[in-house]
Write a protein that binds this DNA or RNA. Structure first.
Lengths: 130, 130
DNA sequence: CCTTGACCTTGACATCATGGGAAGCCCCAC
DNA sequence: GTGGGGCTTCCCATGATGTCAAGGTCAAGG
């Protein structure tokens, strides 16, 4: 199977597959005489794993560790769980940060007339005039 | 005032001040004979505005628009408000996305024993085995 | 046999905001 | 006049992805 087909099956762009190979996240695959990469079910499976991990917000570096855990038959589920919980923490922290920004801005917007007049507490706050 | 002092007063790194100048977010300032940038209160005020806007999650491009609104005495507060509300929407959407990831992962983690055994629904889900 | 179109290859560049570092000039205090 | 710290510019790196370009390849149809 060529890279394009593998990409379609895994839900990852061909570009990213090459990229993942280049940064060492996945191992290089065999090539045809013409230099075309050849993929099998096993590789597509790995790519799908990567795709799902990405959808859960894991960084490529973290995905590398997840792949290592996945391929290690002797890992303890506790290790995986700890890894996941740490990521959940990070996700929630980031979400909270964004919500705090939204709350602050909402508060400012609530006090803005929003009409044709120029006075605006939003800009006044940004300018430090408040 | 030199760039370092301006940076300290505004809470922005000197590196970023030069960058903001280079990308046109702020106007070039006068220089000494030796080529040192010279800043006054007015410039520091603008830099502080930029810093606050960044803290609220605005992109540099958006900050450019905010600066334009700030310096336009004829703007309607409605324009500023609409801009802010759109940003609030984006922030909330992003936060919701992160929380959805966290929720999914938490659900998987809840079903992981987290002991010495290798079986782990988290990896199984990522692998598509579920 | 040749063309056409779809696909593959590599490589370079862009995004966005920020930091790091190097080479070299400048200023002030001692 | 020297030492240390600040300034200048320029280049490189991050992280994940996309775009574009130039050129090779393959399969199908005339």
């Amino acid at each position: 199977m060529n890279i394009g087909e593998a990409a379609r099956h895994a839900g990852v762009s061909a570009k990213m597959i090459r990229h993942y190979e280049q940064i060492g996240l996945i191992a290089p695959v065999p090539r045809t005489d013409a230099g075309y990469r050849i993929y099998g079910e096993r590789e597509v499976h790995t790519l799908r794993f990567i795709r799902r991990a990405r959808d859960l917000g894991f960084s490529v570096k973290a995905i590398g560790q997840l792949l290592a855990l996945w391929q290690d038959r002797n890992r303890a589920s506790a290790d995986v769980k700890a890894f996941a919980l740490a990521h959940i923490e990070a996700l929630n922290a980031k979400a909270a940060e964004l919500q705090a920004m939204a709350r602050t801005l909402q508060h400012l917007a609530d006090h803005c007339h929003g009409d044709h007049r120029p006075d605006c507490p939003i800009l006044e706050d940004l300018a430090g005039d408040g």
